[in-house]
Simulated scan of single mutants.
Amino acid sequence: MEEQKNKIRPEFSILLAVSFAHLLNDLIQGVIPSVYPLLKEEHQLSFSQIGIITLVYQIAASIFQPVVGAYTDRKPVPYSQIIGMSFSIAGMALFSYAPSYAMILCAVFLVGIGSSIFHPESSRVAYLASGGKRSMAQSIFQIGGNAGTALAPILVAYLVLPRGQSSIVWFCAIGIVGQIVSYYIGNWYSEKLKNRSQNSKSTVRIPDLSDTRVYMTVFILMLLIISKYFYIASITNYFQFYTMEKFGITEIQAQVYLFYFLIAVAAGTLLGGIFGDRFGRKYVIWFSVLGVAPFALFLPYADYTMTGVLVVIIGLILSSAFPAIIVYAQELLPKKLGMVSGLFYGFAFGMGGLGSALLGWHADHTSIEFIYHICSYLPLIGVVAYFLPNLQRIPYKEVI
């Protein structure tokens, strides 16, 4: 009865708290790509070096996430978000006064470590507080992160760009606020773990699929993440340079264009969660990745005004997939929530970093405009979503 009651009533206070903590965490992370024009000018960096900054950060954020998730599956750590925020604060402090390229890489590595600790347990909290509405809960959690990422270029444009690199230190205060919010979440999570330990033999429903089918499904999901995050890397890391070069606009105007895209990503994330619960996660995943293809193909040929319209449409559609992918993977392997969340968040970050490095190298050897012609074909990989099993239509079995 208690489980049914929880399914009817998601714990929105916790969902909003973990979403707000995610906003603060990803706001700190979003500062890194937002200051690339400043770093490029002050430190005389190439596009390849900018790509390496993203790669170092994303590798740190990706490699450790599955490890953290697998560890917390065995031994949950309710206050892990506070630990993660501590690494991010240290990284921001170092980033603000980094005198060299090597120190910048060290700083973003620390921020990446903080992200790798923050995400797996936070995603598990969203799952536990969902009351059965898992796509909605995951989208509430994810929209916080997307909103934080969207706010970063605006704050950087008006607070950092006029004052220089040292002003980045003010973002440490955001990490401290995040630790306070995470303490509230940790208290709830600790209580939840105590209640669950009293019923240690509770059963878990898992889809009745062969191991081979499960592995193939995970492989397909990872292909979709490659497509999605390579394309997103092209926008978040290089769109400022693209619009500045193609349309001759200022750095602040370019940051505003990036803001449009990131706000659309936040809105699309929420819609993806709502539609995932209502129509099925497979169909949302399929539409999100493949549906953006015609707009991505047209983007390199658009004029100034139409470019702004297209990036909003692309962000809105493309972002709806990730909450559905995470929940789909959690339902596929419900006994390994932390490992699954860490694996997919980590893989997404890793592909974003790898994509940024490869695109930066390619932009140095061709042009910043040419990479958007290449990336416009990436959403066509979404056709492989056809082969995902529909988890809402297959039998389940219960295991202890």
Rank of each mutant, 00 (worst) to 15 (best):
L45F: 00
L45R: 09
L45Y: 02
S46P: 11
F47S: 13
Q49P: 04
G51A: 09
G51L: 09
I53T: 12
I53Y: 13
T54E: 07
L55M: 15
Y57F: 15
Y57D: 00
Q58N: 15
Q58P: 02
Q58G: 02
A61H: 12
A61P: 03
Q65V: 14
P66H: 04
P66A: 05
V68N: 09
V68M: 10
V68W: 00
V68A: 09
G69F: 01
A70C: 04
Y71P: 03
R74A: 09
K75M: 13
P76R: 01
P76V: 08
P78A: 11
Y79T: 06
S80F: 00
S80C: 02
I82R: 03
I82W: 06
I82N: 01
G84P: 10
G84W: 07
S86K: 00
S86Q: 05
S86M: 11
S86Y: 10
F87D: 05
F87S: 04
S88Y: 05
S88G: 07
I89P: 00
A90I: 12
A90R: 04
M92H: 10
F95Q: 11
F95M: 05
S96E: 13
S96T: 13
Y97H: 13
Y97T: 15
Y97L: 07
A98F: 04
A98R: 02
Y101G: 08
Y101H: 08
A102K: 13
M103L: 14
I104V: 15
L105D: 09
C106S: 15
C106E: 01
C106D: 02
A107Q: 03
A107T: 06
A107M: 02
V108S: 04
V108M: 04
F109I: 02
F109G: 05
L110P: 04
L110V: 09
L110A: 13
V111S: 10
G112N: 08
I113T: 10
F118I: 08
P120K: 07
P120H: 10
P120F: 11
S122I: 08
S122P: 04
S123K: 00
S123R: 01
R124F: 12
Y127V: 12
Y127M: 11
Y127C: 01
Y127G: 07
G131A: 10
G131M: 10
G132K: 07
K133W: 03
K133S: 09
R134L: 03
M136F: 13
A137D: 14
Q138C: 04
S139N: 05
S139P: 01
S139L: 06
I140V: 13
F141Y: 15
Q142H: 05
Q142L: 09
I143Y: 10
I143M: 14
